[in-house]
Design a protein around this nucleic acid. Structure first.
Lengths: 202, 202
DNA sequence: AAGAATTGCGCAATAC
DNA sequence: GGTATTGCGCAATTCT
């Protein structure tokens, strides 16, 4: 009693506040295939964690940029042999900004134009501000997720305890009920016998 | 019944396989202060997510390296004004490898020597191999964590449902018990009256 | 339309 | 030695 309502609210909050299920989640077709929040993958565990689906890429920075352009595969194989030389030479933002020019020359000019826009001038202006703000948001969000996990786990343990207590209570009640039924049947028998006795006496 | 054992195993697995609590977690004194898996922080939410404790640093890469050297604060303030220029100029591994030479000249030579060692030659050898292997492990681990979360949540919901059913069952049993007790008391009364009648007739 | 929140990923430190 | 976990920052996306 009363615990159920609290539990209910927690579950509710969990379900509604954990958007992993209803999000579209179609952002990265190459690496998101194994993170679908689904539970029906167990025998392919060892096979699903390939090296980024073959696309090795450079230093692991601005990877989305190239893939999200609409060319997930076979476009701009990132020189698997020379990536060691490229490792530190590429500025994150620089490479991100120029990638659209270098590797997507076939796009419509209207789509390539934004490269020089002020909004893309991330090299050192309020870009740092935005990054820092996002970092703070990320920390906060992850803290929240961690707390949520802990709460859910505690709730599960608590529910399990309560379940055991309820099972015990049910056992007690059932036993008591059995006893009473037995007594009642005995009384029934006794009454029948009494009636029979009286009838015989008449 | 039977569900409890399964739940128990799940909870057990959860508790034992989620090492967030017993890990030392002292890796980054500057930014890890707010991620202690503790649930008692609610009114300081907005205050705990500062910009990395004041240490702005360059591009957010190889940050641990400098801090983990044993000089978390006040050592090598990373030129907060010129970080915008430094943003892309620093190679991750290069800066990491040379940091020990540049910023720790007071260490014993025996501790500074490893810079040129093969093991620290991460620039392009089997470093990539190690990184890729770790990346695979990370993906796998996070998948596991995600599945664990989903399982725990489902378990909690299932336990809640079962709890409600048990509560209902308890209500039914209690009612039945009440009825039987009432009947029994009536029989008691009846028997007493009968006995009195018989006694009077004698 | 703009900022906050969420998420997948890679890196480095660390635990095991 | 290797894998597993974890905190963090980045970028893309979604939510508000």
């Amino acid at each position: 009693m009363m615990c159920d309502s609290r539990v209910s609210s927690v579950i509710q909050e969990w379900t509604s506040s954990y958007p992993g299920q209803n999000h579209t989640q179609s952002q990265n077709p190459t690496t998101s295939n194994h993170a679908g929040l689904n539970t029906q993958m167990s025998q392919v565990d060892m096979l699903s964690y390939g090296p980024s689906q073959g696309l090795v890429r450079g230093a692991g920075e601005d990877r989305m940029s190239e893939q999200m352009m609409g060319l997930p595969y076979l476009s701009y194989t990132p020189s698997c042999l020379s990536n060691t030389m490229n490792l530190g030479s590429s500025n994150h933002h620089q490479s991100h900004a120029t990638a659209q020019q270098d590797f997507c020359p076939f796009l419509l000019p209207s789509l390539r134009a934004p490269v020089a826009k002020r909004s893309i001038t991330k090299d050192s202006a309020e870009y740092r501000l935005r990054r820092e703000r996002n970092n703070i948001a990320v920390r906060k969000s992850r803290d929240k997720a961690r707390r949520r996990i802990v709460v859910t786990q505690q709730r599960a343990m608590q529910l399990q305890e309560e379940n055991q207590k309820l099972q015990i209570r049910i056992g007690q009640l059932a036993q008591e009920l059995d006893t009473l039924k037995h007594i009642l049947s005995q009384r029934h028998l006794q009454a029948a016998q009494d009636e029979a006795t009286v009838e015989n006496a008449m």
